[in-house]
Design a protein around this nucleic acid. Sequence first.
DNA 1: GTTGAAACGAAAAAATA
DNA 2: TATTTTTTCGTTTCAAC
Lengths: 163, 163
Amino acid sequence: MDRQLDRTDWRILAELQRDGRLSYNRLGRLVNLSPPAVAERVRRLEEAGVITGYQVTIDPAKAGLPLTAFVQMRCAPGRCLLKTTTAGDYPEVVEVHKLTGDSCTMLKIRTASMRHLEGLLERLGGHGELTSFVVLSTQYEGRPVEPPASELRPVTDSAGWSR
Amino acid sequence: MDRQLDRTDWRILAELQRDGRLSYNRLGRLVNLSPPAVAERVRRLEEAGVITGYQVTIDPAKAGLPLTAFVQMRCAPGRCLLKTTTAGDYPEVVEVHKLTGDSCTMLKIRTASMRHLEGLLERLGGHGELTSFVVLSTQYEGRPVEPPASELRPVTDSAGWSR
DNA sequence: GTTGAAACGAAAAAATA
DNA sequence: TATTTTTTCGTTTCAAC
């Protein structure tokens, strides 16, 4: 599937982002397709790499990780986080993005306490300059991805930012 | 369930983060529990709000949204994004976090093109000062959450940062 | 892409240890 | 109390249209 996603594909993705456990039976009914047809669509989306998997979503606070923080790293030459460490060294780091501009990477962090965060930032500091932002509250996270404006966009609810 | 998650809970969460579609049958086998026992555990985790749902995971680039950016907002008085707009106004915004420090919010953005991103940043700029970071590449995203160091942590693979 | 049928697997309940 | 077994139900897949 190299062609652009059509309206039906996006409806399927919307439903599966809402509930990733939907059976082809129910999913088909929701998008007005028969079970085999919708199964074939999903299979193609998986094959094309549009769908990369299915995950349970967790409330980190309820799981004992109430602190979220963003960290911008500006790694020192030869000590870049990405080059000198491995994912297993920093289990608290749940996202790593390389950036344009001054900072080289943006990290998203989950920790159990300020004490843990402090320790982590100190360890990270060994790789270069860093700027950290502690999250006070999260309005949205894992919000369903929608088709770009160029394609027909489904109606979005007009609810506010708070969840 | 107000008590802390035990080792088995974390093993269940680890497996469901890997594959959110696991049946109680398979899941039970993976964590050495009978299907009813594991079903009861999952039910409790859902009830306690630790598990908030199940989502398909999508590769935004493959879905026609190749650009990711972070935006730090410093909203002007009376024009705060959170107060004057609604989620539906900005479908490109997939995450919204309130921050400590100078910036008031951190946004994560997905767009179809630089042109879209430019237009979006202009609209967002109407709410106050902003600093934007375009993502060059993403090493990790949606990485499984692990138990904090205070609790027994499962073995983490020692693979590098690249996925 | 749809409909129908058949086979498979999962979930719930009851019985048992 | 937890596990196993059975039964029932739903889902998936295949074949025909």
